[in-house]
Amino acid sequence: MTALRRVTPQLLTLAALVALVTLFFPDFLRIEVVNGRLVGPIMDILKRGAPVGLLAVGMTLVIATRGIDLSVGTTMAITGAVAAWSITQGYGLGGALALALLAGVLAGLWNGTLVAIIGIQPIVATLILMTSGRGIAQLVTEGRILTFSHDGMAFFGSGDLLGIPAPALLWGLTAVAVALLMRRSALGMLIEAVGVNRAASALAGVNATVLLIAVYVASGLCAALAGIVATADIRGADANNAGLWLELDAILAVVIGGNSLLGGRFSIAASVLGALIIQTVDTGILLAGFPSEYNLVIKAGLVLVILVLQSPNLAHHWYALRRAAQARRERAMDTAKETGQ
């Protein structure tokens, strides 16, 4: 129940957005079954939201430790390139997935080591991989779009299971698994402890160093999954463009999810809803058919409105206004009673 209350603002925002887009595009909620799979704008959102949704899961954990991971977009490019390269080299689906995930783990270890052991500020430490990573990805693809034809790999981008797109299943399952792992064990609380005060949690016996490295590895793994989805989607690795600027969307998703960039309490469900909100905005703009010059302006405007409505200060004002109104009513009633007597 408390969990539901935690995500109520995000659910309300999503509902309001869906209503808004339906105004401009009446068929928005239409879902049909074509060739045994569900087809419609909502399904497109669930599918297209996969990369940011996956990144947001890892990013939530990193941000909960008062960190940030700017390298997830480039990690997507690297892991996507590794996946495409291994498929074309004939390592098979299992080999390609394993190598791509391994690349994600390595990226996470690199970031984690810089942050936890060497003690570089997270924003700078992850900036290093963010800027150099595309070069690494281009080395893997030799600077061209590395295409492949492999139905098993393509499944992760355009396949479906029980009528639901594979990318949607992948990010849904990842979010549920990570959320359960965090809340059914003490892990979530330990991460929050490190985020609130690393020194104090270390004194209390939490192995903060290992935990910090672990969250960056988790972020790298999520980025690897997102990279696999992006590469499978276009059946090719585009080192220049895969995951470009998606780290910013992932951070935005976490923020729309009401998580503080200062670390501490976090909610994966809320972050994932944040990712869905962003994707609904993106897809809604495309469906509404505005000229493309307006895309970013509309997106920025909507995000601003959402963040303002969710801001704690405004909530405080609402609360104060309600209290004042209530007090006035009570006074009015009191005076009415007094004059009545």
Binding site: I145, A230, I234, G236, D238, N241, A242, L286, S292, N295
Partner: peptide
């Protein structure tokens, strides 16, 4: 008419 940013994705 919409922008696809010159990319496949």
């Amino acid at each position: 008419s919409q922008t696809g940013d010159f990319t496949r994705a």
